[in-house]
């Protein structure tokens, strides 16, 4: 009977990692693994028609989705990462940065600026997962701080959309310190009673979750987004037990009281807009 078992025993995690968005007419869903028609996904704000999984979207798509068209003005666009540790693994960090900058057309993993949501001014920051896994180094930390300081200065709400693997290892301890730096600034925002909303998209982990992302006044998440502190593989290796189904999905976090709301992408703008009105 062994040959029957073998077919099905591929662990979910390994399988999940292998799913990459292929070019062409068809897409494989990262969550339910159904093969779906690309056009249909694109028409529905990149949501899987079978399981409602929200595919990653670009920074530009995100800005268009949330803000009134053409209202976004980028801030601190000139900030660039450096290689303060002269970090080298199988490749130099400086080379990895160059490659990421070339492939994404961005200087680092976050874009910040101001714009309007149904007419109301907000500061918006959007992570770009495609830039070294949306990891937070000195530039990302600094820009989160710029966004919060801008919200303080202009006395308008702050909205941050996260997709990140966590702190950027190649900047070592300086990346870790961005957690303290961003959390400190969010504290100032709270003292000044300016509202801050975070939107956790798939995936949000490590140093980003464990700093400003979980400190928002209202925490929203996209359906099925993976959110956590430690990655599922690390946890599995540590506890040596099978993880429950849907572990670390947005629904799991909602169930455990860690987030306020799960909002489908199509209703994200109206939800944030009504939050802005409430405050």
């Amino acid at each position: 009977m062994a040959w029957f078992k073998k077919e099905r025993s591929a662990p979910e995690d390994q399988d999940r990692k292998k799913v990459k968005v292929p070019e062409g007419l068809w897409l494989k869903c990262n969550h339910c693994r159904a093969i779906v028609y690309r056009k249909e996904v694109e028409r529905s704000a990149r949501v899987c028609p079978k399981c409602e999984y929200h595919f990653p979207i670009s920074v530009e798509e995100r800005i268009d989705l949330l803000l009134d068209l053409g209202t976004f003005r980028e801030w601190s666009a000139g900030l660039e990462p450096t290689d303060p540790l002269h970090f080298k693994d199988t490749q130099r960090y400086s080379e990895r940065l160059q490659a990421a900058q070339q492939s994404t057309g961005k200087k680092d993993a976050i874009v910040i600026g101001e714009g309007r949501i149904n007419g109301a001014r907000v500061v918006l920051g959007v992570f770009h997962f495609g830039f070294m896994g949306g990891s937070m180094g000195s530039v990302v930390g600094e820009k989160v701080v710029h966004a919060a300081e801008g919200a303080l200065r202009e006395r308008i709400p702050l909205v941050l959309v996260t997709t990140s693997g966590g702190a950027r290892m190649q900047e070592g301890i300086l990346s870790l310190m961005q957690m303290a730096k961003t959390a400190a600034t969010i504290g100032r925002l709270a003292e000044a009673r300016l509202p801050y909303f975070s939107i956790l998209a798939d995936p949000t982990f490590g140093g980003v979750t464990a700093s400003f992302a979980m400190l928002a006044d209202v925490i929203l998440a996209e359906p099925k987004a993976l959110i956590g502190f430690a990655g599922p593989r690390v946890i599995q290796q540590t506890i040596k037990q099978q993880l429950p189904p849907e572990f670390q999905r947005a629904e799991f976090l909602l169930e455990h009281g860690m987030i306020d709301l799960i909002v489908p992408r199509k209703r994200l703008k109206e939800t944030v807009s009504s939050l802005v009105e409430y405050f």
Partner: peptide, 20 residues
Amino acid sequence: YPGLGAEERGQSEAIARNLM
């Protein structure tokens, strides 16, 4: 600790709160 219960009880929130 990277554990199941730690995630359920909000390891990230606990750390983030302390930083702030």
